[in-house]
Amino acid sequence: MDTMTTKETKKQVITTSQVEHVALLARLELNEAEKDIYVNQLNNILAYMQMLNELNTENVTPTAHVLPLYNVFRQDEVGRHMPVEKVLANAPEKEEQFFKVPRIV
């Protein structure tokens, strides 16, 4: 197998503003130092990923599932519910029988 090279690539695949956008999508808060680290590391990793472009995959079907399984169903039957104390047992905050969360907007 090829040994990995982690040398700096000239081409920036991902920029700071993209890292910020991705962090927002992923609901992560990054300070400036972390942003720099991610820009650097993700660029290294993504540069390595470019290797895949060597392959022509135009006529290749993607594999999302390895098993040739289809049509797995369950019958429409109602089972037992969890007692509400159990439902809320791990809740960081609750009120009456609800999960409590900070204001939305």
Binding site: T57, T61, T63, A64
Partner: peptide
């Protein structure tokens, strides 16, 4: 460019 490409290469590996 990334995810779909990877799923296709997954086929080749398989």
């Amino acid at each position: 460019a990334y995810y779909l490409k990877a799923l296709k290469v997954r086929t080749l590996i398989k």
